[in-house]
């Protein structure tokens, strides 16, 4: 199939960017979206134009490196699919496709379609962990965890940190990302001791970079792992509970 691609090009973080249109010819429907871009890059390279920079790595939808806005859809039109797992059979001959980087103040463009997502790491560093030193752990089966809790925790933990939630959000909020990590840990018995300090620390750090949730639910549909916005509600609940719990705690 033949496609017309309108792609964002930007030479450096400070350079002004702009769209350029490329024709992709004889694209195989079996090719993945990124393979289609690979092919285009090969052609650009041979024609003396610098290839388009885009982040990608595992191409199995798990590393979270890839992610672009495809015709106004984060990760493209297919539900629950990262850009790397999107295949060209989802498009038709003659389509024109607009490809843009994620856009948010906290996700500045580094080059072309590559954005800087390190703000996510800052949120995890603020408290997205259970403080247990290596070697200090008790036997793994010492705590029984209800299967339902373990499964719900796993649902939240499946977040790949791709930032599609931020890209999709009209407010550029990262609540789904933060809530997924907070809920992953707060649903487990191991996560309880730090539960109330964690939620406050992570939410505060999140808000240093990102907007606020106004419950559109766009993040949930954009998420390649279909993480539910129920976790955002759980985070909101924990955040206010934490105000009381922490108040009591410092009195102890």
């Amino acid at each position: 199939m033949n496609l017309s691609l309108k792609i964002w090009r930007q030479a450096s973080p400070d350079a002004p960017g702009g769209f350029k249109t490329y024709e992709a010819r004889n694209v195989s429907p079996e090719a993945s979206f990124l393979e289609m871009l690979d092919e285009l890059n090969e052609r650009l390279n041979s024609e003396g134009e610098e290839p388009i920079a885009f982040d990608h790595d595992c191409r199995e939808g798990i590393c979270g490196m890839c992610g672009v806005m495809i015709n106004g859809n984060p990760h493209g039109p297919q539900d629950g699919t990262a850009t790397c797992q999107l295949h060209m059979r989802k498009f038709s001959d003659g389509d024109s496709i607009t490809i843009e980087p994620w856009r948010a103040t906290a996700l500045p463009v580094i080059r072309d379609l590559v954005v800087d997502r390190t703000a996510f790491d800052r949120i995890i560093e603020a408290g997205g962990y259970i403080s247990v030193n290596t070697g200090a752990a008790p036997d793994a089966n010492i705590i029984a965890i209800p299967k339902e809790a373990a499964e719900a925790s796993m649902d939240a933990a499946s977040c790949i940190g791709c930032a599609a939630c931020v890209a999709a959000c009209p407010n550029s909020a990262a609540n789904l990302f933060a809530a997924a990590k907070i809920s992953h840990l707060s649903l487990l018995p191991q996560g309880q001791p730090e539960r109330w300090s964690r939620v406050v620390a992570m939410v505060e750090t999140m808000e240093e970079y990102f907007g606020s949730c106004t419950n559109h639910g766009e993040c949930e549909t954009a998420c390649p792992k279909n993480i539910s916005i129920d976790f955002i509600a759980m985070m909101n609940r924990d955040f206010i509970k934490a105000q009381f719990k922490n108040f009591v705690r410092i009195g102890q």
Binding site: K6, W8, F19, M69, N71, G72, N73, P77, T98, E100, R103, A104, T105, A106, V109, P170, N171, S172, A173, E207, Y209, F210, G211, S212, T214, N215, H216, G217, E218, E220, T221, A222
Partner: peptide
């Protein structure tokens, strides 16, 4: 909140029309 959200969103805007899948008319026009 609006001020914060506009700041978080920055100047960049998507060129393609966003395909809102979950956000509805009501939520976007609050």
């Amino acid at each position: 909140l609006t001020r914060r959200n506009l700041a978080a969103r920055g100047k960049g805007r998507y060129d393609a029309t966003r395909h809102y899948a979950a956000a509805n008319y009501a939520s976007r026009t609050m």
